[in-house]
Amino acid sequence: MGTILEINNLIISFDGFRALNGVTTKVEKGEIRFFIGPNGAGKTTLLDAICGRIRPQQGSIIFDGDKNIMHYPEHKLVNIGIGRKFQVPSVFTSLSVYENMEVSVVNDRSIMASLFQPITKAQKEKIDDILDLVDLKDYCDKKAADLSHGQKQWLEIAMLLVQDLQLILLDEPVAGMGRKETIKTGELLKSIAHHCTVIVVEHDMEFVRDYASKVTVMHEGRILDEGSVSQVQNNPKVIDVYLGRGGGNCA
């Protein structure tokens, strides 16, 4: 399959505090990779670094074999195939579900195109297909503000899917969801992974167990362990810093 993302010895510090302290990992194509760890382990910081919100002091992030994406401006990442979903659902609440998708689907994002190039038929079909996938087709004309929490999360994922990405970064996609919604989101991730790599930061251990192909456990800015779910679950160090202590509210 090949490697889609290669992170080498990443170091990020804020005012002397090392949020990431030498993180090295590789993500293979088609994986659903979970990053877990207690609060402050550096998971979200890692996502922020991958998508250009934070500039690392040291190290490198190589995407798709040869692109060093550390110096890419955020708005150009979509063009090379990286999309990011935020922890708090961030959809455009005053626009309808369909308009949210319309804004996301286009490839030419210049002012001229947004005035003179209407959505093509193929793009319309793509929007319909993906809204179908996330069960939002019946809500096309509904304002995004009126959707439930779960539906907003799915809409945001749908907005990523419509962009033909190679790598999707999700920050706690099931936070605040009920069991049913969580399962639905998990199944959605599985079907996404057929044509796209997914990186997820998550707290919900049950969700991790059910859907991760590989798990990276982080602690205090370092990688503690990496492997299959059962492998990391049996690692005494992991149990000590994370599963053991935080297990009560995470499991």
């Binding site: 401006p73 063009n79 961030s90 994002r109």
Partner: peptide
């Protein structure tokens, strides 16, 4: 036109607009 939706999108969530590939500053 779509530009109007993008303007509203910038109002609602500038970060999302940025990660949808638009440069909001432009």
């Amino acid at each position: 036109h779509r530009l109007g939706k993008i303007l509203v999108a910038i109002r609602d969530g500038e970060n999302r607009v940025r990660f949808s590939g638009y440069d909001p500053a432009v």
